Simulated scan of single mutants.
Amino acid sequence: MKKIGILFVCMGNICRSPTAEGVFRALLTQRRLSDLFEVDSAGTHAYHVGDAPDLRAQKAARDRGIELKHLRARKVAAADFEKFDVILAMDSDNFSILQDICPETHKDKIKYLLDFAPQLNQREVPDPYYGGAYGFERVLDMAEAAAEGLLEFLTREGVLSKQAG
């Protein structure tokens, strides 16, 4: 059985995308759906390849019971467009870069993370890197809302029932 592949993408893969990955993994664990998914995160730039998530992101996540320290930054690879079913960009810069490097046949996989949290009335997850602790909390709030919305979308579209059946 092929797992449902979800890839979260930001610029350096040390703040937003690993946070979203951790939040989504935690939700899948809570709902006992982990076996149906392959979840990862990556960056559009290679600034931090091999690094653990930002310590502030780790702390904010840990305070909510989500562990990120085992994750390591990597750059988006050409194979990701084939491997993953949904590729979620954190902002318009990353969305544009993904669109530019993605083969035409897979462009429909690229979406904004916050498209799955319409109640937030925004499309971009702000980069908390140069700010304070509040920014990391805000990213977690957004990731939690979007993770729920993504799971609801996959259920509504019948993707989960195909995997479970």
Rank of each mutant, 00 (worst) to 15 (best):
L120W: 00
E152A: 10
G65Y: 04
I110H: 00
E21T: 01
I110L: 05
Y129V: 06
R62F: 06
D35N: 13
K109N: 08
E21C: 08
R56Y: 08
Q30W: 06
A61W: 09
F81C: 00
Q122W: 00
P118N: 03
L36N: 02
Y129K: 03
V23Q: 03
G50C: 02
M90C: 06
L33N: 09
Y47T: 07
K111G: 02
V159C: 01
A61P: 03
H45F: 15
I6D: 07
Q122P: 05
S17P: 07
M90W: 09
N13H: 10
A60H: 04
N94S: 09
V125A: 01
T29N: 11
D85I: 00
L160N: 01
D35E: 13
V23I: 09
Q119I: 11
D80Y: 03
L151H: 10
A133S: 14
Q119A: 13
V159K: 12
D63E: 15
I66Y: 02
K109T: 02
Q122D: 03
K2H: 12
C10E: 12
A147K: 02
D35M: 09
E82N: 05
D108M: 10
H106A: 14
A117V: 01
F37L: 09
Q122F: 03
L28M: 13
A143Y: 03
F81H: 03
I6S: 04
R62V: 12
D85W: 01
G50F: 04
D127H: 04
